[in-house]
Nucleic acid binder design. Structure first.
Lengths: 153, 153
DNA sequence: CTCCTTATTGATAATGATTGTCATTATCAA
DNA sequence: TTGATAATGACAATCATTATCAATAAGGAG
């Protein structure tokens, strides 16, 4: 279940006719360690510390590729920049969703009530994909509101 | 329940110490007629047809205000631009969510299974807001996948 | 109705995130 | 080891959005 070590990633790339390069290894390494959504720039800076040759363009290019490969998930929380994280199937991370504070833009991950969610999704996914002929691959649930800190101001 | 006519909107603005201006009237008019998520540029062009003085900056400024007032909802579907629509409480529109095609970026609204959703939300909202001290105001559910047209290509 | 304060506007420039270009470099199959 | 070409990085370009600022207009006071 666990995908460990860069050799495993090598195969993913080569299987798709892609090459396994230093930037790709390091970008995935950063994502794997962080386990929380990072912006392209965050990733750029992290990689830059250990590989100062890296270009921001390369980070964007590879994130796009990784999203296409299904290895990485891309989110938009409404602050103008995209965030990326290893997709759950890759990271073994818990399935989770987000609470987005509309004052300070903070994002809280939560992974509670997944039993209730599973029950809910099982009820509707089939119906939706039939009615709209839409092949569902993924879903997100975002709650918007005010976080504790912002409430007490 | 129905909020009809621009005089009703006038009050909303004036109540908040804002003025009721032509651009604001027209922007709301476009949103009210369209009933589907429009980008700032979409709105700009629509208003421009009947009021060619309008500036794109003004559209952005007023959309921001309207979002703050809770009159308009802002979405990010991941295509780089934000989309706006009258919030449900204003438009009387059905509560709905979105199916986002990852190939062609098309967005399908759906309003099915709302009973199941209500049941699900009632189970988890209270728990979430307690556990994370997060005051929930709104939520979105997006399903990502491939739409019918793109499947048959 | 007129005046006056000031919220609002629109043109413009500026920003910030992301994408395109292209010559150079490096991967990996043969 | 070598060669075809995928991938890179520097740079310029684009796209959405935001800041600036002088000119305009909404609406309350008189």
């Amino acid at each position: 279940m666990r995908t460990r070590g860069s050799q495993c990633w090598r195969g993913k790339f080569q299987g798709g006719g892609y090459r396994f390069t230093k930037p790709r290894e390091l970008i995935l390494g950063v994502l794997a360690k962080s386990k929380k959504h990072l912006s392209a720039e965050d990733i750029f800076f992290s990689v830059h510390k250990i590989y100062s040759n890296i270009g921001l363009t390369t980070v964007y290019r590879n994130l796009e590729l990784l999203v296409d490969m299904g290895t990485v998930s891309k989110f938009n929380f409404g602050d103008g920049k995209a965030n990326y994280e290893l997709s759950e199937s890759e990271s073994g991370a818990e399935h989770h969703h987000h609470l987005v504070c509309q004052k300070c833009q903070k994002v809280i991950d939560y992974a509670d009530f997944m039993d209730a969610e599973k029950e809910f999704l099982s009820k509707i996914e089939k119906g939706l994909s039939k009615k709209y002929k839409f092949q569902i691959q993924d879903h997100i649930i975002h709650f918007y509101g005010i976080c504790g800190q912002c409430q007490s101001k």
